[in-house]
Design a protein around this nucleic acid. Structure first.
Lengths: 245, 245
DNA sequence: GAGTGGTCTAGACCACGCA
DNA sequence: GCGTGGTCTAGACCACTCT
């Protein structure tokens, strides 16, 4: 037993490959440049295509690569920073945040949301849909759940549709005193609808930001924002505003 | 061209599978329960094992499953909420946050960190290593980069080692006025060392929180925290303290 | 139609945890 | 030693985008 050999632990092929390609990206390629196709890369490195893809998967997850079916694999630009922490407590859309209202419907919320709202899971609520772009690319989709009690002035049968209706529902919120809000961030995978909107495949990794708005001692609304994890870096600039002044 | 058929879009096998298993998890299994092994599940659903694994990969990414080599696949408990936003601006470890100091060494920081610090990429700095647990399980690893100028009272040759040395470096920071801090959250994959510490495989998805501490108009320190994305939900309770009072 | 990335298969072998 | 999940292979076919 004397020979406690260092034990090189046989580096995994895809792990090694990832490192090699990662270095090549920095030294031999520039942003936007297109890589050789997967079949050729696999042949060049002497591995099966599935193994090569395992390495590319990770690099794409880290935002280093961008793959588009029918086109090819390109070197991704650095992640875009997306401000997420409102410097001051505000209702969604009250001060012109980066979001664009799309539409609003009445629907039953997911169980997790109903739990936060304290409503019955089968009880329909307003669901406001907003989207967010950056540099012309969609980066996030959002669904805001607003119980009827939080929008007493809005009649469900209101004929308005689309963005007009969405803004009308949100405007009802502004009449309530916003007493607090809290947020969570977690990893998720894009539902089919999100994927379409974010120009990704279903199941693509996303950062899910859940915001709970508190008014009158209860949860007045819940916003679930879904950010593309490959292209986004969420920035939470807290009170740097204090410093900037 | 007349027949604009609804076009069912042939649901992908692994996507469909994920839905089926997802429902089964809610209705037929309880937390901690062990699933049939992958070979049997694949056979039961009539797909190749690789396809079955693609579905399980996603469920694990979403924190619904937990897989351990040599053991099996179990139903994961709900994600644990980990507070990340310090209610008040403080240096790392100044008020007893959830972190435990491990050790400190002198090393060259990654290029991205050096850029934030405004130091030369080759210039070595203090690197303080901390770790964080929750319910007995490691959930995060952290590296805090402290340039020499931010810890003038600490001699690099200090004989102290381990946690003692780590705390000594951090204590130097507390003498500086903390003027602000900002954070970013993004998706990453665990480096080999992180993976070991977090009890995961290399490349496992992690949430990377980067905190920049500002003092004297410059970046005094940078902390890079790596959270297990499968088991953690980051909570950013902003000023709910105001509400609670 | 040609070329790309995405899905799927049916096998083999490896690394690990446990009895 | 056995059973588990993790890696890897060498193919096939599909869906998409461009020309």
């Amino acid at each position: 037993m004397g020979t406690t050999q260092p034990d090189t632990v046989t580096e995994l092929k895809y792990w090694h490959l990832k490192g090699v390609i990662s270095e090549a990206l920095e030294s031999e390629f520039s942003v936007g440049e297109i890589l050789p196709n997967e079949r050729e890369l696999a042949a060049r490195f002497g591995v099966a295509r599935a193994t090569l893809r395992q390495a590319l998967d990770q690099l794409e997850l880290e935002g280093r690569l961008q793959r588009r079916r029918g086109v090819g694999t390109t070197v991704a630009p650095p992640r875009v920073g997306v401000p997420v922490g409102s410097p001051r407590q505000m209702w969604p859309g009250e001060d012109d945040d980066g979001w664009e209202a799309v539409d609003a419907v009445v629907a039953a919320p997911p169980a997790a949301v109903a739990r936060m709202l304290g409503t019955d899971a089968a009880e329909p609520v307003h669901r406001v849909h907003r989207s967010r772009s950056r540099n012309g690319q969609p980066v996030a989709a959002e669904l805001i759940y607003v119980p009827g009690v939080s929008a007493p002035g809005f009649s469900r049968g209101d004929a308005a549709t689309g963005a007009v209706r969405a803004r009308a529902v949100l405007h009802e919120l502004y009449r309530l005193p916003l007493e607090g809000q809290d947020r969570t961030v977690e990893l998720g995978s894009a539902r089919a609808e999100d994927a379409r909107e974010l120009d990704r495949l279903p199941g693509a990794p996303v950062l899910v930001v859940t915001t709970r708005y508190v008014s009158g001692g209860r949860t007045a609304a819940v916003a679930v924002s879904t950010y593309r994890a490959d292209t986004c870096r969420l920035t939470l600039d807290a009170d740097t505003a204090v410093l900037a002044s």
